[in-house]
Nucleic acid binder design. Structure first.
Lengths: 165, 165
DNA sequence: CAAGATTGATTCTTCAATCTTA
DNA sequence: TAAGATTGAAGAATCAATCTTG
């Protein structure tokens, strides 16, 4: 009688094949590629700072809470990110005229300039992320990620506030 | 003459549709679901701590560098993670007999017990991550993520060291 | 010098608590 | 009280520098 034990000591499924682990690795690689492109271009914007900066540009005078909702950041995270963007001279934080509790955000001319300069690098990073896949596969991966995220948005701690339909 | 401006002020493509942003959101949701399952089960293991603990169980007496390679963690990250697992009594860190520089890691009986207890929660979290997709879509998402990660592994700052084949 | 490990610094994430203002 | 914002704490990721040991 022959008994075969494959991964007998492994109660859970192979960790490396778990969705959670793949999510972590995927994000890890995406950040790494973004950093590499920024460094090559001579800038040090992080992915998070870039997303915030673009969103401020597209939504002039947004307050921080709204900005957080637009890109699914924690309110606490926003404070630090804006601190650093302000320190770099890319964003200005102003007390709202209509509500002194709120801080409205404006991109500076240097911020606009930086965004313009790094655009090719950002695009290159995004393409690099999908460079291991065919065009069709890349599109399908994007579609499945969007579908997954939309389905679970409300169960996330920091749900995305729909900005556009 | 009519000129149509769609996203005219948006130099880069919509940030929310960029692979890098989707990677961040996907990871954010995956971590959130894992935390929710752990909390419901009465444990406070993080996804990172869980991955390390499982890998230590499957590779008795691994040193920290090898462990880092197995799950694509930075050597520096490992130190803190093992600190916390040791503090919780789930792992023991021992100076290697053959190389006093190295620390070999062993899972404790309580660590084994915890892994056994949380197994259903871990599995539930993994299924929850894919709950917005059909079975076929979930499998396809996993396949595309694996393919992407394998293709870019070497361009990551912390490449995964193949543990098996 | 090279390798395993650790510490420090910076950024990001999340929660709890606090401060100011409505 | 509620809302916008901030600070503190803990975990994590990455790089630079350091310490110990080979």
């Amino acid at each position: 009688m022959i008994s075969i034990h494959v991964n007998a000591e492994c109660a859970v499924r192979d960790n490396l094949e778990m969705p959670g682990h793949l999510a972590r690795r995927f994000q890890q690689i995406a950040v790494s590629l973004f950093h590499a492109e920024m460094e090559a271009a001579g800038y040090d914007l992080t992915p998070v700072q870039f997303a915030a900066l673009v969103t401020i540009q597209q939504n002039p005078n947004v307050d921080q809470i709204t900005l957080a909702g637009l890109i699914a950041y924690d309110r606490t995270t926003i404070t630090g990110v804006i601190d650093r963007l302000t320190r770099k001279g890319l964003v200005v934080r102003t007390v709202s005229d209509t509500d002194r509790r709120a801080r409205t955000l404006q991109i500076t001319s240097e911020g606009v300039s930086v965004l313009r300069d790094i655009e090719p690098s950002v695009e290159a990073a995004q393409q690099a992320i999908l460079s291991g896949l065919s065009a069709a596969e890349g599109a399908e991966l994007m579609r499945l990620l969007v579908k997954t995220i939309e389905a679970l948005n409300e169960r996330s701690r920091v749900p995305l506030k729909s900005a556009r339909g």
